[in-house]
């Protein structure tokens, strides 16, 4: 996992498993920032993200004595946080299935070349691409992704996990992850193309 910035070895697993509160506090400070941001990307709601953050550490502290170290501590905490986020999304929208029926997996819906937007907006200057307004649009676009696709995109492209790690965290096959990633990326490319095609027109008229 992409955790170079966090020196995991600086924590004593032995102390954590014994419930050493000073060490637990250090663990919380090492990982809370990453977990909060992950939950925020999943839920797009600061209150929900805070709930996920608290539940993740509550569960982790309860389960630590049984932690066997088969995965790294950070991967383990991530898995709890991902499950909490998905559970929360399920609760909020019980009608939205997180696991679409198998036949949907291979459908070409959204991945047909017929209705692609073909504006070439790559040439827009950085300050257009990176403006506050663009940022807001990027965030909105992620939230329009169905939860099944969002989880894959958040873990793979925003958190930089591998296909394999993403599959393990979400309990999917690697093929499923790749299919969903393709659909998520094409969906977002389409949304951004709609948006930046307009900026491109304005910019060319200047």
């Amino acid at each position: 996992m992409n955790n170079e910035s966090i020196p995991e070895t600086s924590l004593s697993l032995e102390a954590l498993k014994k419930g050493d509160r000073h060490e637990l506090a250090r663990m919380v400070d090492l990982y809370s920032d990453k977990i909060y941001r992950l939950a925020l990307k999943f839920t797009n709601n600061p209150q929900d993200a805070e709930d996920v953050l608290q539940e993740t550490f509550l569960k982790a502290m309860r389960a630590l004595p049984e932690f066997e170290g088969r995965s790294s501590l950070s991967t383990w905490l991530y898995r709890i946080a991902v499950n909490e986020s998905l559970m929360l999304l399920r609760k909020q929208k019980p009608d939205v299935s997180l696991d679409p029926p198998a036949e949907e997996e291979d459908s070409d819906e959204g991945t047909s070349s017929n209705d692609l937007i073909l504006a070439d907006w790559c040439c827009l200057p950085e300050d257009e691409l990176l403006s506050e307004e663009s940022r807001r649009f990027l965030n909105q676009a992620i939230q329009q992704l169905p939860a099944t696709l969002r989880g894959v995109f958040v873990l793979r492209d925003l958190e930089g996990l591998s296909i394999k790690e993403t599959a393990e965290l979400l309990g999917l096959t690697e093929t499923n992850v790749k299919t969903r990633l393709l659909r998520a990326r094409l969906f977002l490319r389409q949304q951004l193309s709609l948006y930046f095609a307009e900026r491109l027109k304005e910019w060319e008229q200047k």
């Binding site: 919380v28 400070d29 809370s32 920032d33 909060y36 941001r37 805070e50 953050l53 608290q54 550490f57 504006a119 070439d120 907006w121 790559c122 691409l129 990176l130 663009s134 940022r135 990027l138 992620i142 492209d157 925003l158 930089g160 990326r185 094409l186 977002l188 490319r189 951004l192 193309s193």
Partner: peptide, 27 residues
């Protein structure tokens, strides 16, 4: 090109401002 740019824009979003103090307190 626009697909690559899309992924690139998402990967280089600013972030990492740290956990807000009041959230750390409540946690």
């Amino acid at each position: 090109n626009t697909l690559r740019k899309t992924i690139d824009l998402y990967q280089h979003q600013p972030g990492d401002e740290g956990l807000p103090q009041e959230i750390r307190h409540r946690l």
